[in-house]
């Protein structure tokens, strides 16, 4: 098993964090993982993306060319990376910000209203967590608990108070992904 993921959006949407939490969760599942950020002259509002590989064997190329999963948090990202998906690959797109439909019909596409979910759970900054929830809902690659453990590690003890709202966003994202299909 080798999952190759591209996660993209605009700076400030937490796309690098989505990638880190996926990689960290993979590590907790005893997989081999890599996380490679784009580190050009990015800024808030500019584009940001990262590549994550989760595999049973030692990770070869950390750069993803043929993605099995693309997570697009905004329209330019969907437009740019949809074509990187292998046939049958999974596209998760943030339908709160993307009105357009994916152009490919040979992929599995799931619309996730990330920003709407985030508002519903009471913290607009949890849109990326909603997307992570949708990812595990759609793939079953790991459980909500593994993801929360990864998040806990990333946030550190001082941010424990933010765990419940993030967990709520993850749960709502899972439900949204399952309901879509």
């Amino acid at each position: 098993m080798t999952e190759q993921l591209i996660i993209a959006g605009f700076g400030g949407q937490g796309v690098l964090l989505i990638g880190q939490l996926l990689a960290y969760s993979g590590m907790l599942m005893e997989k081999e993982v890599s996380w490679l950020p784009s580190y050009g002259p990015e800024m808030r509002g500019g584009s940001a993306n990262c590549h994550v590989v989760i595999s049973d064997e030692a990770v070869g190329s950390p750069k993803v060319e043929e993605a099995t999963v693309v997570i697009a948090m905004n329209y330019p990202s969907m437009k740019l990376f949809e074509r990187s998906l292998v046939p049958g690959g999974l596209l998760l797109y943030n339908s709160s910000l993307i009105e357009e439909k994916p152009s490919r019909s040979d992929i599995r596409a799931i619309a996730v209203p990330c920003n709407d979910i985030a508002k519903e759970v009471g913290n607009a900054r949890t849109a990326n967590m909603a997307m992570l929830g949708a990812f595990i809902g759609a793939t079953g690659m790991f459980t909500e608990d593994v993801l929360v453990e990864a998040l806990r590690h990333k946030l550190g003890a001082s941010k424990e108070k933010f765990i419940p709202v993030n967990r709520a966003a993850i749960a709502a994202g899972m439900t949204a992904a399952k309901a879509f299909e």
Partner: peptide
């Protein structure tokens, strides 16, 4: 190289 510097791995 930039990749080794910026990449995260276990």
């Amino acid at each position: 190289d930039g990749c080794i510097g910026q990449m995260m791995e276990p």
